[in-house]
Design a protein around this nucleic acid. Sequence first.
DNA 1: GGCAACATGGAGAGAGTCTCCGTATTGCCA
DNA 2: TGGCAATACGGAGACTCTCTCCATGTTGCC
Lengths: 207, 207
Amino acid sequence: MGEAAAGERRQRTDKQRNRTHILEVAEQFFTEQGITGSLDAIAKRAGVGPGTLYRHFPNREALLAALLQARDEELEARRVAIQREVTDSRAALTQWLQAMGEWVSAFDGLPDPLRAALTEGTSPLALTCQGFVTTTEDFLRAAQRDGYANPGVRGRDLFLSTLATAWARGAAMADESSPDALVSLMRTGWETPSSDEGPSAPQARVN
Amino acid sequence: MGEAAAGERRQRTDKQRNRTHILEVAEQFFTEQGITGSLDAIAKRAGVGPGTLYRHFPNREALLAALLQARDEELEARRVAIQREVTDSRAALTQWLQAMGEWVSAFDGLPDPLRAALTEGTSPLALTCQGFVTTTEDFLRAAQRDGYANPGVRGRDLFLSTLATAWARGAAMADESSPDALVSLMRTGWETPSSDEGPSAPQARVN
DNA sequence: GGCAACATGGAGAGAGTCTCCGTATTGCCA
DNA sequence: TGGCAATACGGAGACTCTCTCCATGTTGCC
């Protein structure tokens, strides 16, 4: 199962070259047009046949996963930096959520396959999503321990909220003035904190 | 510009019959498979040619808009009921948000065209969206006046959040246990209300 | 009943995804 | 360096979906 078993031919250089070039072209293409553009168009722009593209990346999600791997490592580095340098657990959680929000906004339309990967599990993006949930849970637990975050909230919920916020921003949202309104809504909610009822009842239904 | 100008033939009965039947079939189809299913398949199931379907509804959004019109009236009725019967402005806002959340979850995938309609304006769904924003603003203003809702929040933000929450629920989300976790997150946020800094500073960046 | 206006349906153009296999390129060994 | 087996390539083409066009069929009106 290793990737360099003895006695095997080494990978052909044209294959590696094509793979790299396709990734470069796809990165630019997705940045320009969002992740729903035609894969055949990417192949054409890369100067290869459709068959070559599909042999390297059997579907759009696989291509996306390969593309995101580099960025994944950047985010991992950012996570380590936050955990080392930010001692306030609330600020750490905030910064992590922002970093994750930027990551999932790398390409227009990216939140959709990520949400699908979160629930289906059969996607090459599933592992990445699971890692995000776990890391978010780490930051969240620390913030909850220090009393900065509500105890009922789960890491998965925060990740989903981050995805949903990025989704809502969408493509042509730039002209409108709700860039981080949803982020702060997710942080503080719409309801005013001072309740007239029980002092700290978690959430009674108002119906 | 009227729809019954004098001297014009009245609409053919087969046309009206086809239109109604297509709508019935589409309603069931979208309920089963979500809004991304093939329109030609709907035509076939309805026993008409593709041309007939596209003449009645030039694209998917037009079909969707016609389909949602009936439900739109239901929601309008619910709005009136809430405004009459619920005197507490916080409960009224909560109930309206829930009603709207159910409405935008009528079909799987519905939040996507609604968000698009919110920003593009050229969609037949745009008017509906605008109405929702306005109504949400009415309820929100009352809640803000009574001190139940944060003053910085806007109706548009709440509608977008409702859309985003419905989007996050998605299709295969039923097996997971975050049905209304996002709803309560949107209501109260993840942060604990008691701040150790200024008593009521709206939102200082923690970076 | 007959005609003009109207609506129908299905063939088909165009775009996109993905597969298959004959051909070209590469790595290895002598 | 030459030759061969393994490997990768390209692009034709099958399939699906959206949407259009116009010959044909149906309807409303007089």
